[in-house]
């Protein structure tokens, strides 16, 4: 059986809020190392990969592989009841048809209990190859969100170019062109504002802004975001959750017709 208690319960709500517009039904795969999720969007352009490691929970118990087939719209309805500072506990049998979710207020004077019906989801798992990316950019997640939403107002697509001079986000639309360039930046007192660009070779790729803006719904999870690029492979956008738990998004590039 599964029993997992999360003190940073808002993490669960933020993860679900970040992915529910991209994927609707997905398996939460539980085993002794933690809770993982991998799902593609309907059009098979983007992939979500999440891992909440066992260390993120206290206690965490899961002695067998358990797949929790969850409709995220339904889970969102249950998570509406979650309040700041609540402890959340997930419980399920070995072959569950429902997921038991308990919220406890930090003062322990309120316990809310929900049973969410589960579904059988036949999900294809994709093998994600280990990639040495040509460019890795770590930057404030709010900045990335602002760049993507600002450029989306002008165009459907953005070209991301990483060179030794910096990283340039540019777009061309009916009303004109736009571009934002970021250079390496270090702020000793406010490290969360740093822009770190690691480059082994120049990269230039074009992506759909609709998906990037969608990924930015994960912004409340972390004040930093990591963007990894290599020519002719999917973009990786990573938000660290707690410790080494993560939420990753992969996006296939657009190519010249």
């Amino acid at each position: 059986m599964l029993e997992a208690r999360l003190s940073q319960s808002m993490v669960l709500k933020k993860v679900v809020d970040a992915i529910k517009d991209l994927v609707q039904d997905c398996n939460f795969d539980c085993n002794d190392s933690g809770i993982a999720l991998q799902a593609m969007d309907n059009s098979h352009v983007a992939l979500v990969s999440m891992l909440l490691k066992a260390e993120s929970f206290e206690p965490y118990r899961c002695d067998r592989n358990i797949a929790l087939g969850v409709n995220l719209v339904s889970l969102t309805k249950v998570l509406r009841a979650l309040q700041n500072d609540d402890l959340v506990t997930l419980k399920a049998d070995d072959a569950p048809d429902s997921l038991n979710i308990t919220f406890e207020s930090s003062t322990a004077d309120r316990i809310s209990e929900y049973d969410l019906k589960l579904m059988d989801i036949d999900q294809e798992h994709l093998g994600i190859p280990d990639t040495e990316y040509a460019a890795t950019v770590t930057m404030p997640s709010t900045e990335f969100k602002r760049i993507c939403t600002d450029l989306q107002a002008m165009s459907e697509s953005v070209t991301i170019e990483a060179t030794k001079d910096g990283i340039k986000f540019s777009c061309a639309g009916d009303i004109g062109n736009g571009a934002v360039t970021l250079r390496n930046y270090q702020n000793v007192e406010k490290e969360h504002l740093n822009v770190d660009i690691e480059l082994t070779e120049p990269v230039s790729l074009t992506f759909s802004l609709k998906y990037l803006v969608n990924f930015c719904k994960a912004q409340p999870l972390s004040d930093r975001v990591k963007i990894c690029l290599s020519n002719e492979v999917p973009l990786l956008v990573e938000y660290l959750i707690t410790g080494t738990s993560y939420l990753r998004f992969y996006l296939a590039p657009k190519v010249r017709d």
């Binding site: 992939l47 074009t206 296939a252 657009k254």
Partner: peptide, 14 residues
């Protein structure tokens, strides 16, 4: 014009 590629072209089913 640019064509959107599928993620399935990069990551194989396992």
């Amino acid at each position: 014009t640019r064509k959107q590629q599928s993620i399935l072209g990069f990551f194989a089913k396992s």
